[in-house]
Amino acid sequence: MIPPSIHLYKNDLPDNLNLGNIIAIDTETMGLNPHRDRLCLVQISAGDGKAHLVQIIPRALGGNGYDCPNLKRLLEDPVVVKLMHFARFDVAILQHTLGIDITNVKCTKIASKLVRTYTDRHGLAALCRDLLSIELSKQQQTSDWGTAILSEEQKNYAAADVLYLHTLWEKLEKMLIRENRLTLAEHCFAFIPARAKLDLLGYEEPDIFSHR
């Protein structure tokens, strides 16, 4: 396997960086509560073997905080398809933290659950192993992403979370078409931004769609 090309940026994407109309996105945070835990890193790939990591540095630590106009412009662009794995969380943290609205999302986790009903393994590592024969290391999953200087291990881990999403989506899309569930998947994807807003409002429990 050719080692990925990883580009790390402080505070924002560089000007005039063209990543095309289909990008893979992931985030790293200090925890899983968007109201409590800050956004530390946004990873993006155009599916070309390159990963672009944007380190979000608080003003208290000498950074620009959430003043990242190039990143926001890309994420808000309705023409750009955003590939994510467990988009429900990533959309929520990005919308809440950056104050933006995200549309045109596709989620490989939802796609997997819709079409890979023969398994209960729908995590990114399982998808890469089962569909791409690639083993992902998850050792850095619980590391400190708020540190000022990211280790090489952290950067490699963060990059891996976006480098394979294009290929995964291509395979999952073919399976969704084969099983006549692509339209259903698209309806689920369109609901993700609203589902994220419901989560931010505290509607994870009780579920407003349940009978209770």
Rank of each mutant, 00 (worst) to 15 (best):
I2A: 14
I2S: 11
P3S: 04
H7E: 07
H7K: 11
K10F: 10
N11R: 08
D12F: 09
D12Q: 10
D12P: 08
N16G: 06
N18R: 10
N21W: 10
N21H: 14
N21K: 14
A24R: 01
A24P: 03
P34V: 06
R36N: 13
L39T: 00
L39F: 00
C40I: 03
C40Q: 03
V42C: 00
Q43I: 02
S45F: 00
D48R: 00
K50I: 00
A51F: 06
A51K: 04
L53Q: 01
L53K: 07
V54R: 05
V54H: 07
Q55P: 00
I56K: 03
P58M: 03
L61F: 13
G62T: 07
Y66S: 00
Y66A: 00
Y66T: 09
D67C: 07
P69H: 11
K72P: 04
R73F: 10
E76L: 05
P78V: 05
V79M: 13
V81T: 13
V81Q: 03
L83F: 08
H85Y: 04
F86E: 01
R88A: 15
F89S: 08
F89E: 11
D90G: 03
D90T: 00
D90E: 10
V91Y: 04
V91T: 06
I93E: 06
L94W: 02
Q95T: 14
H96S: 13
T97G: 03
N104L: 06
V105C: 11
V105M: 07
K106C: 14
C107T: 05
C107D: 15
K109I: 01
I110A: 06
L114T: 01
T119A: 07
R121L: 13
H122G: 02
H122L: 08
H122Q: 04
G123A: 11
A126N: 14
L131S: 10
L132C: 12
I134D: 02
L136D: 09
Q140R: 06
S143K: 10
W145E: 06
G146P: 02
G146N: 03
G146F: 05
T147C: 08
A148V: 10
S151V: 09
E153D: 15
E153A: 15
Q154N: 14
Q154I: 11
K155M: 15
K155A: 09
N156V: 09
N156L: 14
N156D: 08
N156C: 08
Y157G: 01
A158M: 02
A159N: 07
A160S: 15
D161L: 03
V162T: 08
V162I: 05
Y164S: 08
L165C: 01
L165F: 01
T167F: 07
T167V: 04
T167P: 00
T167S: 11
W169T: 04
W169R: 03
E170M: 05
K171I: 11
K171H: 14
K174N: 11
K174C: 09
M175H: 09
R178H: 15
R181Q: 14
R181F: 03
R181W: 06
L182G: 01
L182N: 06
L184V: 13
A185S: 08
E186S: 10
H187S: 15
F189Q: 04
F189E: 07
F189T: 02
A190E: 15
F191R: 12
I192Q: 04
I192T: 05
P193R: 03
A194V: 11
A196Q: 07
K197R: 12
D199Y: 13
G202Y: 00
Y203Q: 10
E204Y: 00
S210M: 11
H211M: 11
H211L: 12
